[in-house]
Design a binder for these strands. Structure first.
Lengths: 202, 202
DNA sequence: CTATAACTTGACCGACCGGTCTATTTATAG
DNA sequence: CTATAAATAGACCGGTCGGTCAAGTTATAG
């Protein structure tokens, strides 16, 4: 096995874990190196800067996300409405598991990073925005299908998709602040009640 | 006028602005002192630590918030439903104004801090949680009144209040990531569609 | 084999971090 | 006035930050 790839992977995995459970600013490169058993020089051989590392971490997590439970949740074989419930459940179990292990709810890595760096780093902000856009697209497809099949009355599916993503992020924000994953379970199902009408009469 | 109070106020105002437009970790005490025209010694005369400063900043902002547009939005003379719209509008105009001036949407200070420090500082987390709880209470009152007056059909007002707060925070998170206050205007009004039914035992 | 590129090592850098300290000035109370 | 406390000034501290670098080691290609 290529030891270089292994090293890079180890750095990535460590950084992802630390960034997720703490924050971007709070985690130093030295700490990442120590835990990943890598020297500073090796680190900078693979990542030109901390920002580049963050970009890679976001890509890495977004990939796992897309091919993991998000792929399951938005399974085309599931009825659209059930996909929404699946997403909520997945978010709950993930946060619950993390809290049971580490004692603290880490929240959503993307949401965490977004609020932390958006005003300071336009490159990271753009990347995170793209991740949210992809997530929104999955909701959008789902709602389109729901409307097509009559499972939902007509509505502005694009805007409602964004609303649902926002709601999910907001729930996780509140739950993290309370350090209580159960809040996801309490508030989550109401995601299905969100509606933005076509032509926006509000 | 007492120059001491003036100094403390200047520190507080500066820290609040910087924490809001950047982040807790990214803003150093030195920078706050420089901008507030205060020496390190004076700073530590008023605030024992950076954490204490953050606590004071949160209190300060929560106070202004409660006596400012939140008080206006939740004006008892307004019909309950209109209060919800008022909150959304206020959030929009605030973010819009900030972006027009500074070029970037700062988002919600409480939400920003909550995601940044929740896993690292239980004292700040508890304080932020209390702020959210107060906000939730305002929504709760409003929904109770809406149900009483028949403006809304019966529902779990407490849970729905939390849902609405989450949604608002989520919208601001997404809008900040997109650096686009208009998203608040697009998604905001749908806050009135959120519903959590009564059967939940709580 | 040799040549070269990929990778690793760890010392080192200047800047900055939150926080401390002593000395001094300023406001206030009697 | 004097005594005392509040407030200010700013040098200083150990530690850490992201990042650099020169030297060495290891893998690979011809």
């Amino acid at each position: 096995m290529n030891p270089a790839i292994d090293t890079r992977t180890r750095i990535l995995a460590t950084a992802r874990e630390l960034f997720h459970s703490r924050s971007y600013a709070d985690v130093g490169i030295k700490e990442i190196c120590d835990i990943a058993k890598v020297q500073k020089g090796s680190f900078y051989h693979f990542f030109p800067s901390k920002q580049d590392l963050a970009m890679a971490v976001i890509d890495d997590m977004a990939d796992d996300w897309a091919h993991g439970f998000v792929a399951e949740a938005f399974d085309q074989n599931l009825p659209p409405i059930e996909r929404l419930d699946y997403m909520v459940d997945a978010a709950y179990y993930w946060q619950k598991a993390a809290k049971d292990i580490e004692g603290r709810m880490p929240g959503c890595l993307f949401g965490n990073l977004a609020l932390e760096v958006s005003t300071r780093d336009d490159v990271l902000r753009a990347k995170l925005n793209a991740v949210f856009d992809k997530a929104r697209a999955r909701f959008h497809e789902t709602l389109d299908e729901a409307v097509e099949t009559g499972a939902m009355p007509p509505l502005d599916t694009k805007a409602t998709a964004a609303a649902m993503l926002a709601y999910l992020e907001g729930i996780i924000l509140l739950a993290k602040t309370k350090n209580d994953p159960d809040l996801v379970l309490l508030l989550g199902p109401a995601i299905k009640t969100l509606r933005i009408e076509l032509n926006n009469p509000n």
